[in-house]
Simulated assay, not measured.
Amino acid sequence: MSDPATSPERHPDAHLIQQAEVPPLDVDGVQAASVGTGVFAVATVIMAVGYDTLAAAGDGWWLGVGISGFGLGLISLVYTNDRRRRRRRGEKLSA
């Protein structure tokens, strides 16, 4: 079998690896923000229910992590939904 790099029919500018034309699944990020916010919400509820166990182990601060993640998720939902709305209306987005 011949080496493809040295074969005569190979163009010198051709690449061995080509990327397929695949469109992005979620251009505006609403789905990712929704899933992340939901995961933090569930985790926060679980940690709130078991807070006594967490606190006894010295890990009560994890509840704050869950609340913070949920709060930041809500902010990201507002942002991504606004971004989606502006894109659909054709407004120019700032970089």
Rank of each mutant, 00 (worst) to 15 (best):
D13N: 08
R89C: 05
E91G: 04
D59P: 00
L25E: 08
R85E: 09
I67Y: 00
Q18S: 12
V49T: 10
V30C: 06
G90Q: 04
G73R: 00
A57S: 14
I75P: 02
G64S: 04
A95L: 11
A48F: 11
Y79P: 00
A95E: 14
S76W: 02
L77M: 10
R10K: 15
N81C: 09
K92R: 13
H11G: 05
Y51A: 02
V65I: 14
E9N: 09
A95P: 02
A56H: 02
S94N: 14
E9G: 07
H11D: 15
D82N: 11
L63A: 03
G71N: 03
G50H: 08
A32K: 03
A43E: 10
G36L: 11
L72P: 04
R89I: 06
A33E: 02
R86C: 08
L72N: 06
A56G: 07
R84M: 10
S94T: 13
V78Q: 02
L77D: 02
V49D: 05
D59L: 15
I46R: 13
D82Q: 11
T53L: 08
D3F: 05
P12N: 03
S76D: 04
H15Q: 11
T53S: 12
A95C: 02
G50Y: 07
G60K: 01
S68T: 14
S34R: 08
V35K: 01
L72G: 12
S7N: 09
S76L: 12
T44L: 04
H15K: 15
E21I: 08
I46T: 12
V65Y: 09
V22N: 10
H11W: 08
F40N: 09
Y51E: 05
G64P: 10
L63N: 06
P24C: 06
